[in-house]
Design a protein around this nucleic acid. Structure first.
Length: 641
RNA sequence: GCCGGCGUAGCUCAGCGGGCCAGAGCAGCUGAUUUGUAAUCAGCAGGUCGUGGGUUCGAAUCCCGCCGCCGGCUCCA
């Protein structure tokens, strides 16, 4: 039999019989657990025939690309089960996602959560049958015949530029798919269908509403369990549940959907955040301003919002004159800037405001504190000269990082959204302004040593921007600070300064929201901390628990002493067993509990316990007070004695 | 707004082949208990079963409309 030679990255050359597949090559090269191969830049199936003299790399589950293919094959398993169990299913698309997969389809009958176990069971049968997954290439005409009656697949076929299309077949199931895929269905072992939802064909609400089934797939049952446990943990931390249980905030339909009522403890924490935010802005040369919640529509007509943002605005009349509830603060800040002429010597001018805005959001999009109809932006606008751009941007990034770090967010992703060079006419601002701004943003990232992803064509029409996505304690990603250029408003409002040459020049305007909105940031923070705020934010920092009523006076005395020192301490006067009071303290998520009995009273000490159960031993009451004061002053999370 | 699910005491939920089906636990209140690190015991109080209509002798339970919530889609701070 003829032999061919294939060189395998990491293992050297192997000789195999001609006509074998890459899977055979992987075995010959003793590559364990290969799922996928790569030829140059192209990912290929292991079932592809090996070619003489080629170089391939094998990818195992450790490679993200392989895991994605793994999940993609799982989605085909789902599609296969769907076509087996339901008549008249028209498959649309079914990609892998960051931690799972989904398949969109048009079903003749409604599919709901109760159907998932049946689908899952069928998938399991198909996986256990270990059906070979085969790639085929067929002409478009044949493909059209194969998918006749399925408008989605036909639409996709028409968009393929080549004359042939690729199909993947497993058993009696065939799907239009670019691949690659795993060699057989038996590779997919640990999976679970997690949800059924609706989704528009191609994400466009003018199109058909399809049914989407979500699932997740892992190599090992254990990994799947971990993933499901992480989802449970996330559920446990849901800010809506914590918000209610800890009486932090409430939102109720009878008062208006998407409108937040801050209860005392929530308002307290929010106030701490605001105090910190304001101090830091003053320190960094911002001037705080305050503007009204409503304005004549004219202001927002000038800004252009009335034209392109009207659907999101609440409008009404005052004395027959049209007014709006403000959806943004920018026109107001510009109005203040424009109240008089500014010299270049005054720049940069930095205005900031915790400005409450209202936006019409569709009812289906509202979600706890994360998506509401009335919210307070930590808004800031910087008016500066072209020369000051990089310094100002660095200042914004610095402040953003400082704020995030203080709140315990230490890892994040940075994205730079630039305009689409193909569509220069779709943007406000001049060519020169865009180039300068995009370069300034890139330069800022370089200076601040921020690794960023450049997203071409993702900029909003009025200017390029930097977005920072933060990761919380569970590794989930949230929208964080955004720093945006605006070429639209300075032009529309004529935002200028008088230069050294005596002439009028247009300002560069930077719009920045670092926390985003207090509501959304608070929701993020609540989940990040799982409801246990660090002492500087916590409404109650320390609760003294007397072992019995006999030492209650000592607990009260301690609370009074700590309160006098500016700390937020209280004594638990409730009757009952110690264990019950400890439990109450834990449930209230108070960061520190101080148990006191006769021994402690005699020595003026406290048996200290951190939330979660860690025993910090017996500490002197005065030393505890000082330690707590230090923790609050430096906003750290833990006590140091 | 659209698809699917859901809406019973402050919270978590049971009851849903229509008639002693308006219940339980927790939280609250009252009393007993005096307690050493995640729930002491007993009693009391608490709901026009989201809302409007319909079917029926009779509806939490069946049907329809509306509102809201949840998971998504879309959009976004």
């Amino acid at each position: 039999m003829a032999k061919i030679t294939v060189s395998v990255e990491g293992s050297g050359a192997v000789e195999v019989p001609s006509g074998v597949t890459l899977l055979d090559v992987a075995r010959a090269a003793q590559v364990e657990d290969a799922l996928l191969a790569r030829r140059g830049e192209t990912l290929v199936d292991l079932t592809a025939p090996a070619q003489d003299g080629e170089t391939v790399a094998f990818l195992t589950y450790e490679a993200e690309e392989a895991r994605e293919v793994f999940r993609h094959t799982a989605s085909h398993l789902l599609a296969h089960a769907l076509t087996d169990l339901y008549d008249g299913v028209k498959l649309a698309i079914g990609p892998a996602t960051a931690d799972g997969f989904y398949y969109d389809f048009d079903a003749a009958v409604a599919v709901n959560d109760d159907d998932l176990p049946r689908l899952e069971a069928r998938m399991r049968e198909l996986a256990e049958a270990d059906l070979p997954v085969a790639r085929e290439e067929v002409g478009k005409a044949e493909a059209r015949k194969l998918f006749a009656g399925n408008p989605y697949k036909l639409e996709l076929i028409e968009e393929i530029p080549e004359d042939t299309v690729i199909l993947y077949r497993q058993g009696d199931f065939v799907d239009l798919c670019l691949g690659p895929h795993l060699p057989s269905t038996g590779y997919v072992k640990a999976f679970k269908l997690t949800a059924v939802a609706g989704a528009y064909w191609r994400g466009d609400e003018r199109n058909d509403m399809l049914t989407r089934v979500y699932g997740t797939a892992y190599r090992e049952e254990e990994e799947l369990e971990r993933h499901l446990a992480a989802i449970e943990e996330a559920k446990r931390r849901d800010h809506r549940t914590l918000g209610r249980d800890l009486s932090i905030f409430s939102i109720a339909e009878e008062r208006g959907a998407g409108l937040v009522y801050w209860h005392p403890s929530g308002a307290f924490v929010r106030d701490q955040i605001e105090i910190f935010w304001k101090e830091e802005h003053h320190r960094r040369g911002y001037q705080l301003v305050a503007t009204p919640h409503i304005a004549r529509s004219r202001l927002f007509e000038t800004s252009g919002h009335f034209h392109y943002f009207l659907d999101n605005m609440y409008t009404f009349e005052v004395d027959g004159i049209p007014y709006v509830l403000k959806p943004m603060n920018c026109p107001m800040h510009i109005a203040i800037y424009n109240s008089r002429v500014h010299s270049y010597r005054e720049l940069p001018i930095r205005y900031a405001e915790l400005g409450t805005v209202y936006r019409k959001e569709r009812s289906g999009t509202l979600h706890g504190l994360l998506r509401v109809r009335g919210f307070t932006q930590d808004d800031g606008h910087i008016f500066c000269t072209p020369e000051q751009l990089v310094d100002e941007l660095c200042g914004c990034v610095d402040l953003a990082q400082f704020l995030l770090h203080t709140f315990g967010f230490t890892s994040y992703d940075v994205e730079l959204s630039a305009r689409d060079p193909q569509r220069p006419d779709d943007y406000a601002g001049t060519e020169e302004e865009w180039i300068r701004a995009e370069e300034a943003l890139a330069e800022t990232c370089r200076l601040k040593e921020l690794a960023y992803t450049r997203r071409e064509g993702e900029a909003i029409f009025y200017g390029p921007k930097i977005d920072i996505q933060i990761y919380d304690a569970l590794g989930r990603k949230w929208q964080g600070p955004t720093i945006q250029f605006d070429f639209n408003l300075p032009h529309r409002f004529g935002v200028t300064y008088v230069g050294a040459d005596g002439a009028e020049h247009q300002c560069y305007m930077i719009h920045r929201a670092l926390l985003g909105s207090l509501e959304r940031f608070f929701g993020t923070l609540l989940e990040h901390y799982a409801g246990v705020f660090p002492p500087w934010l916590a409404p109650v920092q320390l609760r003294f628990i007397p072992v019995n009523q006999e030492v209650l006076p000592y607990a009260k005395d301690l609370a009074a002493r700590f309160q006098a020192a500016g700390l937020r301490a209280e004594a638990d006067a409730a009757d009952g067993k110690l264990a019950a009071k400890i439990r109450a303290g834990e449930m209230a998520k108070i960061p520190y509990l101080g148990v006191v009995g006769k021994k402690e009273q005699e020595a003026d000490t406290v048996a200290l316990r951190r939330h979660g159960g860690e025993d910090l031993g017996t500490v002197d009451a005065d030393r505890l007070q000082e330690a707590l004061q230090r923790t609050v002053a430096d906003k750290s999370g833990t006590l140091e004695f």
